[in-house]
Simulated assay, not measured.
Amino acid sequence: MQRPGTLRLWSAVVSLSLLAGGCASAPLDRAGSLRSYDNLKPSDGLLTRTLLNVHKDDVLAAKTVAIVPTTFSSAAPTPFTEEQRNLVTNAVDRSLCTGLSERFEVVDPSQPADLTIHAIVTHVNPTDPIAVGFSKGASVAKSVLLPGVPVPVPRIPIGLGSLSLEAEARDPQGNQKAAMIWGRGATAFMGSGRVAEEADAYSLAADFGGDFSMLLVKGATPFGAPPSMPSHARLKALLGGAPKYPACESFGRAPGLVGMVGDNLGLPPKWTDKGATNGRD
């Protein structure tokens, strides 16, 4: 039997953590990479802030897309090493490729395409690995003090990372057909994080890729509508299988179950993600 006092104490710790501020902020900076910033309208999700514009008919008429690899804005200071930046940008591109494959044929950037996609990282805040370590310690302590009791252990709301990007889809003539400025911070309520400076940015990169690809797949804001079931091809790619189109192989395969285990254990992304590749057998 568990002591009622212990349960009440742990519940109080959880409540105070939730009240202390559970989400990092992410600015909607402009890097100047978009052909136009006109007609961008707010369209926020529960945790995400965006400004977006989409020419629905033109986007829905498109059949093929090419993805120019994501880069960091030269005007935005970053605390990351080149290896960390590559992990984040490749996570963006892999997520974009998987999401866009739901409706489009993804081709190599050297080939003609109805739409060409390019994203730029405009702002990033690093994760505090020490704070994540304390969160992992709290999770272990809970399992010892309250084994079998389903008490959530929120992440310590200190040192939460954030990520901001801008992205655009252009037609062969260079005209903007869709654009989005996107910002989101990590939250204390969803997972205890990974012990690495780039961990939150890496996770949020995949979220951005999902949102921007959905904007193009639906020709409308990705927020507010009920989620749809992913296709078999998408599930296969998310679990580390071969992507639907060969062009996506350049971004490597998703870590799949290994990545899920690594995330649960708090392992750095580079321990489970092999990154970009020139293709696999």
Rank of each mutant, 00 (worst) to 15 (best):
A141C: 12
G259L: 08
L52F: 08
P150T: 01
N86E: 14
E102L: 08
A237G: 04
S164A: 09
V132D: 01
S250F: 06
P112G: 05
L163M: 06
G183W: 01
L40F: 10
W182M: 04
I156T: 14
D108S: 08
V13Y: 12
L215E: 03
L52Q: 15
I158F: 09
A12M: 11
A205V: 01
S164W: 00
K41R: 15
G241N: 03
G22V: 10
R103D: 07
K63F: 08
S101L: 05
I67N: 01
P268M: 05
K244F: 02
S228N: 11
M260N: 13
A31W: 05
L47F: 14
T116C: 02
S95Q: 10
L60H: 13
P42K: 03
E197F: 04
G266H: 03
E166C: 00
F189R: 14
R155C: 15
T48P: 09
L257A: 15
G161T: 00
F80D: 11
I158P: 04
L160V: 03
R184N: 15
M214S: 15
S17Q: 13
R30N: 07
G133H: 05
L146A: 02
A119G: 03
I130C: 05
G240E: 06
S43C: 12
A206V: 02
V149R: 06
A113R: 00
R3E: 13
A61P: 11
N175M: 08
D58Y: 07
L46R: 14
P154M: 08
A237Q: 02
G224M: 06
D263R: 08
G193S: 02
N175K: 12
C97A: 15
V144P: 04
P150C: 02
M180D: 01
V68R: 14
L257R: 13
T277V: 10
S164D: 00
E102D: 10
D93A: 06
A188F: 13
S213Y: 02
V217A: 15
L265A: 08
L216M: 11
N90H: 07
D57G: 06
P42M: 04
T70G: 02
A31Q: 08
L257S: 11
